[in-house]
Nucleic acid binder design. Structure first.
Length: 272
DNA sequence: ACATCTACCTGGAGGC
DNA sequence: TGCCTCCAGGTAGATG
């Protein structure tokens, strides 16, 4: 599942193959993603040069000479660099064809992803306007976490996963970061002490940094191969480990449901 | 302003 | 083997 680390790894993998390349065509085989892929995308972007590739939360921003292609991977999306003549599979919905003879190919079996356009006069798409803080920037620290959590009655886990406050943290890394910070996922956000906010901010940053590092080293066949890029297998401490022994204390990991999402935690290591 | 719920989609797992 | 049901996930938009 693409969360911030997977999207960032994708960005870094694509960068050397896309920078300063011109777009010669955009092939849309399936326009029905989360929102319809703009019908005139090839006209809007064709002939332009890719001058930058940025990430905002889980959105990838392909900056062109005039305008931006915005791609979100949803929960099953992946991007790869392939020879543009490579046969497309059933879930290969969009190709951005480059003047190198290669293409950026979007595969997304569940079609929760999105391919959108922002014109040169609208540097930010409305979708990006209400996003929260980037957890890997210097501005995100314990003080920030403290400020964000004040007066909030919902759980700290729900707050971490709310992109209006903090971007990039999905279910997997919310579970993992709370484990590393020793915080019980159902604790009301507003009850977190200042020291625990500092601990949590560090845990979020550290968890994401380590996942990006793991992705960079294991995502070897980003280019060329016809298989999925294979989002790196991480050694999780709690995620998807219900009833298994905690890697730290040996207690069985517990599973509960919060806001229709699976929450995993260690009853010994994580306290209210 | 905040909190909670629903919809979107499909592959894979488990039950019968 | 095949059919059915359920689940996973991100997040905008609706609802409370």
């Amino acid at each position: 599942m693409p969360e911030l680390p997977e999207v960032e790894t994708t960005r870094r993998g694509l960068l050397p193959h896309t920078q300063h390349r011109a777009i010669v065509d955009i092939v849309v085989r399936q326009p029905r993603l989360r929102w319809p892929v703009p019908a005139n995308l090839a006209v809007l972007a064709g002939g332009q040069t890719l001058v930058g590739l940025e990430r905002r939360g889980k959105y990838l921003l392909f900056r062109l000479t005039r305008g931006t292609i915005i791609i979100h991977l949803g929960m099953s999306g992946s991007l790869r660099i392939l020879d543009s003549a490579a046969p497309a599979g059933i879930h290969d919905h969009v190709d951005i064809v480059l003047d190198s003879g290669q293409c950026i190919r979007l595969r997304d079996p569940r079609r929760f992803g999105a391919v959108l356009w922002a014109g040169p006069d609208e540097p930010d798409h409305p979708l990006l306007a209400s996003l929260g803080i980037e957890p890997l920037t210097p501005e995100f620290d314990g003080d920030c976490m403290y400020r964000l959590s004040r007066e909030r009655k919902n759980s700290i886990k729900a707050l971490l996963m709310d992109s209006h406050h903090i971007v990039g943290v999905g279910n997997i890394y919310a579970n993992e970061a709370l484990f590393h910070a020793g915080i019980h996922p159902t604790l009301a956000a507003g009850k977190l002490s200042r020291p625990r906010c500092h601990r949590l901010a560090l845990a979020i940053r550290d968890t994401l940094d380590k996942a990006i590092a793991a992705g960079g080293s294991s995502l070897r066949d980003f280019v060329g191969s016809d298989g999925m890029p294979g989002y790196f297998q991480q050694q999780y401490f709690v995620y998807a480990r219900a009833d298994l022994a905690c890697r730290v204390c040996g207690q069985p990991i517990r599973l509960l449901r919060q806001n229709q999402r699976a929450t995993f935690y260690c009853p010994q290591c994580q306290k209210k």
